[in-house]
Amino acid sequence: MDWPTVIYSEEIVREGFGIADPKIPLSARVELIEALSATGLKRISLGAFVSPRYVPQMACFKELLRSFRPTPGVSYLTFAHTPKARSIAAEFSPPLTLEDEWCSLAIDICDVHQRRNVNRSIEQAMQAWPEAVEDARSRGITQARVAIYSAWGSNFLGKFSRDYRLSMLARQIDLLQAAGLQVAEIGLHDSQSFCLPHEMEQDLRAIKRQWPAVKQFHLHMHDARGMALPSLYAALRTLEPSDTLLIDGTLGGLGGGQYCGNGIASGMVATEDLLHMLEGMGIPTGVDLDKLIECVWMVERMLGVPAFGHVAKAGPRPGPGQTYDPNLPAVESLQGARHFKLGPAAYEGEAYSPWKAPITGPWFHVPQGQTSKP
């Protein structure tokens, strides 16, 4: 099967630390960014220029930008959501990467979450759109992106209909097209973890029917109910080879939103799980999964909480030359399971071997009916 082009953006420093202990030392943040930069990841979001009164975790953001060593070929991004933030970002470029500027419109279609998150109603947010469009036109910007947050539903208002989703996209797209801007990207953000895989599939098909010229899609999937990865798989199955899919996620699936009611439990799709799946599907990522797992363990030590992802706990599927010893002792704990990377030292003192003799036999190497290893 031919897949869409996948672009991955690592969000742990912004999304994950945005809800973590604000006392995480600057030196630890720098260490993590530099370790992430060595994994092969090409896009790393570092934070946002926001008030420390509301997001104290970002109080050291400017100092952070002055402290780490950028790696050539890696884009370091920020969430520049206001003209003031864009102006400050320009002062810190480099190390920040200022990508081609778009006219960006977005709306949280849950009015409760919209108010809790940015202290403005849906109506108030939409009233600012014409000014944003005119500002973009005055600066010669011709491309635009649109997005809806809480796209599939709300912990406060319940499930949303497809008609409602499409109508809130249409409000933005109609305004932009009337102003002569080309809408090139549509974003769907599952801020409150309501998406199910079949809804993702049906929605993308409906969007592509209604706006066939749009070829880039941005998915930001929270994971409070475990549906982020299967929903992203549904998106990959639905989109065409000519499409581009931009996916956000975090190491270990750590992250969340302060205002959705789930806190850190809302998480995100886990970077290591998603990239492991993509590689297995034949979609190259260019990322060293072994180094990435080390970064997950680093984040666990920094935050003092276990990651939500799976691959950093049990390891990737063993490839040729990496399969487990058939006489491996019984392993029970999460620490013991890390033998995939740490070797016998991981389970030293806790494992036991109930086998009186080594496991051998005619089916030891190749399963019955299979003439060679896959």
Rank of each mutant, 00 (worst) to 15 (best):
S231I: 03
P358V: 09
R145L: 06
F364H: 10
D248H: 13
R14M: 05
S242C: 14
F340P: 00
T97F: 12
G257Y: 02
R301P: 02
V287F: 04
K313F: 11
M277N: 05
A28W: 01
K159E: 15
T5F: 08
G153W: 00
S121G: 11
A184C: 14
G267Y: 00
W152C: 06
P4I: 10
R29S: 03
C260A: 15
G187M: 02
A38P: 00
E279I: 06
I109K: 00
E99A: 11
S67D: 07
K42M: 08
G158C: 13
S231A: 08
H198M: 10
R116W: 03
R86K: 13
Y347E: 07
L334S: 08
W3A: 15
G261A: 07
G158P: 09
E199R: 06
R29C: 03
G336A: 10
L236E: 04
S45V: 07
L157D: 11
P306Q: 09
Q202G: 14
V6S: 04
S45N: 09
H218N: 13
Y233I: 11
V112I: 14
L77Y: 01
F308R: 07
V311F: 03
L65S: 11
R145W: 03
L278C: 10
I148N: 08
P354L: 13
L254D: 00
P374S: 06
P318V: 12
V6G: 04
D325C: 12
P344C: 11
K341H: 11
P344L: 12
E272C: 10
I293Q: 02
S266N: 08
Y352R: 13
V118S: 09
L245M: 12
L204F: 14
V296E: 00
I12T: 05
V50G: 04
G153P: 02
S154V: 05
D243A: 08
C295Q: 01
T250D: 10
V6M: 06
H222L: 12
L105Y: 02
L236C: 05
Q124L: 10
L32G: 00
R69A: 15
H220L: 09
Q182K: 14
E350W: 07
K23Q: 02
W152G: 02
S242K: 14
A307K: 01
R43D: 08
L274T: 02
C295K: 00
F217L: 08
I207S: 10
D135A: 15
H189N: 06
L196N: 01
M268S: 13
I122K: 10
S353M: 12
C260S: 15
P329C: 06
G226I: 04
R139S: 12
T250E: 11
L105K: 02
G40S: 09
A28P: 00
Y8E: 03
F68R: 03
G249L: 05
Q368S: 05
F308P: 01
P284L: 10
D325L: 09
Q172Y: 01
Y347M: 07
I359A: 12
L175M: 15
R165F: 11
D21N: 04
R66A: 12
G304L: 09
A106I: 03
A357H: 11
Q202T: 13
D21W: 00
E332P: 03
Q216D: 07
P130I: 13
T71R: 15
C195T: 08
P354T: 10
E279W: 03
L289E: 05
L77G: 02
G349N: 11
Y54C: 03
M302K: 01
Q182A: 14
E272M: 12
P197S: 07
G321K: 07
S87T: 09
E91N: 05
